[in-house]
């Protein structure tokens, strides 16, 4: 199966003003710095016309709420699973007792 485009694509028409200074409500400030790990060597500036697929991660609205659901789901499943096991063990025990009683009855 070939990959399908999964994103909703929208177009927003604006007047592009290339070459002009960055327009913004506020001044720029460094958002993130990360040291280049060992084994990587800086070769030179990237060619200006190379294309990048830039992904912008916008802050998620209610991740904390999702996390709460996640852990509740997990706990619930574990408790449910444990209860099921106990139930099975009880049944097995009951069956065993019946079996023993039946065997003893036959032996008599």
């Amino acid at each position: 199966m070939l990959g399908v485009s999964v994103f909703l694509t929208v177009a927003v028409a604006v007047q592009a003003v290339f070459g002009s200074p960055v327009q913004s409500r506020t001044a720029y400030a460094v958002k993130e710095t990360h040291r280049v790990p060992r084994k990587w060597v800086k070769m030179g500036r990237a060619p200006a016309d190379k294309m990048l697929n830039l992904q912008i991660g916008v802050k998620q609205g209610q991740f904390g709420e999702l996390e709460r659901h996640l852990y509740e789901g997990v706990c619930y499943s574990s408790i449910e699973a444990t209860e099921n096991v106990i139930e099975v063990l009880k049944l097995t025990e009951t069956n065993l007792q019946s079996l023993i009683r039946a065997t003893l009855a036959m032996a008599r």
Binding site: D49, L54, I56
Partner: peptide, 12 residues
């Protein structure tokens, strides 16, 4: 789908 990632294709 949740709109938490915006993807743009632009040059360097």
């Amino acid at each position: 789908p949740a709109m938490d990632w915006i993807n743009i294709e632009i040059n360097v």
